[in-house]
């Protein structure tokens, strides 16, 4: 997988376009009528309760699953950087961080640059298994960056980080978006932080309940119905993210695909 020359595409051509996607598993409707368009340079966040199909949607969009209905069009030669929600490295496979970063086809130098970018250049020779949860998430992000992606798909990529770590993580994502000009699609549980970093929020519960700017979505009745009003609702959290630390923000991401 050598780096292919990037196709010259008009600014307006979307990275990814999904129309009317439906997906079922074992007779259960997991997703229906999902439309989603993603352009270069924008950060789109998908929020939704457990079991709302967020991870399934991510897996459909990267091509790991095929939709039962509708179609997904990806820009030709689209390079995707992906951080899966769940990834375990078994003890049986010896794997250093630097070798892991080369698996996608990138060079050692590209891997080293990516590690530098996420602030862990000293971990290159460590075994993946010997990393802490937070270090491992950073390595996963570095892995997604090695091939200079056009589209970054992050499924709960900030899991296992402490609160300052989470905020720092999303700042890093914004910086990377600015550097690479890539589109970013992410799923997050840390509602207020995630939404603060987004250009657009999609509220998912099997179908798209509501979508728009963070301010619009957090005020939408559909969103409030799913996430409640809480102390002041997520809108307040969003506005006062620096002086609040609500319990709802860091609850564990225990979700099945």
């Amino acid at each position: 997988m050598a780096e292919p020359a990037r196709a010259v595409v008009a600014e307006s051509a979307p990275l990814l376009e999904a129309r009317g996607i439906g997906f079922r598993r074992g007779g259960m409707r997991i997703l229906w009528d999902v439309d989603l368009v993603l352009h270069s340079g924008e950060i789109v966040t998908v929020v939704g309760p457990n079991g709302s199909g967020k991870t399934t949607l991510m897996r459909l969009l990267i091509g790991a699953l095929k939709p039962d209905e509708g179609e997904i069009r990806r820009r030709p030669d689209l390079r995707i950087g992906y951080v899966p929600q769940k990834m375990t490295v078994d003890y049986t496979m010896p794997l250093t961080v630097s070798r892991f970063l080369r698996l996608g086809g990138g060079t050692t130098a590209a891997g080293a640059r990516a590690l530098e970018r996420v602030g862990i250049p000293h971990l290159a020779d460590r075994q993946l298994r010997a990393l802490s949860g937070g270090q491992f998430q950073r390595v996963l992000l570095a892995q997604a960056l090695t091939l200079r992606p056009d589209l970054l798909v992050l499924d709960e990529a900030a899991q296992g980080l402490d609160q300052p770590g989470v905020a720092q993580f999303y700042r890093l994502v914004e910086e990377i978006r600015a550097e690479l000009g890539c589109g970013v699609l992410m799923v997050g549980h840390d509602l207020h932080v995630v939404m603060a970093a987004s250009d657009r929020v999609i509220c998912l519960n099997g179908h798209i309940c509501c979508a728009g700017s963070p301010t619009v979505v957090s005020a939408a009745p559909e969103y409030r119905a799913l996430f409640g009003y809480g102390t002041d609702g997520a809108l307040a959290l969003y506005r006062h993210e620096h002086d609040h630390a609500h319990a709802g923000a860091g609850h564990p991401a225990a979700e099945e695909a």
Binding site: I80, L95, G104, G105
Partner: peptide
């Protein structure tokens, strides 16, 4: 080799890498 490794490590990551 590389494709086999990627597919063994994580099938979703494999999909993202084509």
């Amino acid at each position: 080799w590389n494709r086999l490794l990627v597919a063994t490590l994580n099938e979703d990551l494999a999909a993202a890498w084509g």
